[in-house]
């Protein structure tokens, strides 16, 4: 077994070690974020620190999704390095479809004042028709892309929860609708912020907001650029 799994829990009792490993498996592999009440190692601050120390040498970090809700994500410094390698697991067009869904399900509803919570998880569906009609992407590419995006948890099919009297309205035959998927919960605060900023830079490059973002990034002292330091876990303990 990799020393990371043992080093982080070396000082713990056997029972606590099991708790931390179970929590590791849960946050890393579960499709959805977990509530603290489900895992001792998420609610107990000491064990949570051990969990964070287990995740850290594997390039991962704990992500707080909401009150009492946790999952894991890529460390910000690791994400930066990996994205510089320019290796992509998703085809270009899939990523484009995904961004369209973020625009229709998050950005536009936000501009319309329909979303209250500050999260990339949205309840505003994007219909396949919107994706086809209001974009330059080829129809077939959108369809195959959506299948891969669903499998990776970047998007999910939206439930049709409209009351029956509303179902007769505009998009009855529009086919399925989509929402951003559970994988978005794994974005760290810095990654969430970066996604927002990249969208603004791309869509509104000549707005004062884009200028403010560029100015902010040009000041390395502020959190526009994170230093590659580990906020919670420390490197030294892993090698001991």
């Amino acid at each position: 077994m990799h020393p990371a799994f043992t080093a982080a829990v070396a000082d713990l009792s056997e029972r606590h070690r099991d708790e931390v490993l179970a929590a590791y498996a849960a946050v890393e592999h579960s499709w959805q974020p977990l509530h603290e009440s489900q895992m001792l190692a998420l609610r107990d601050a000491t064990l949570r620190r051990a969990l964070q120390q287990m995740l850290h040498p594997l390039g991962r970090t704990l992500v707080k999704v909401g009150p009492h809700l946790w999952t894991s994500g890529y460390r910000d410094d690791i994400a930066r390095e990996l994205s510089e390698e320019m290796l992509e697991s998703l085809p270009l067009v899939d990523r484009a479809v995904f961004v369209l869904i973020l625009i229709h399900s998050v950005a536009i509803p936000r501009s319309q004042g329909l979303i209250d919570q500050d999260t990339w998880i949205s309840n505003q569906p994007t219909s396949v028709e919107e994706l086809n009609r209001y974009s330059r992407l080829p129809r077939t590419a959108v369809r195959t892309g959506l299948a891969r995006l669903r499998a990776s948890g970047l998007v999910q099919i939206a439930p049709d929860r409209r009351p029956h009297q509303a179902r007769g309205s505009s998009n009855t035959n529009a086919g399925a609708s989509y929402l951003p998927g559970p994988q978005l919960a794994r974005l760290t605060p810095a990654a969430r912020r970066r996604l927002q900023e990249e969208l603004i830079l791309a869509a509104g490059a000549d707005t004062p907001l884009a200028a403010a973002i560029r100015a902010r990034r040009a000041r390395p002292s502020e959190d526009g650029v994170l230093k590659p330091s580990a906020p919670e876990a420390t490197e030294t303990q892993e090698n001991s």
Partner: peptide
């Protein structure tokens, strides 16, 4: 602004928004 960005951008531009993001 969002609508016209969605309507007029090519796949490359749209996908570029995900620069710096790593997904599973």
């Amino acid at each position: 602004t969002w609508r016209s960005f969605a309507r007029t951008s090519d796949a490359q531009t749209l996908a570029g928004v995900l620069d710096g993001q790593v997904f599973d």
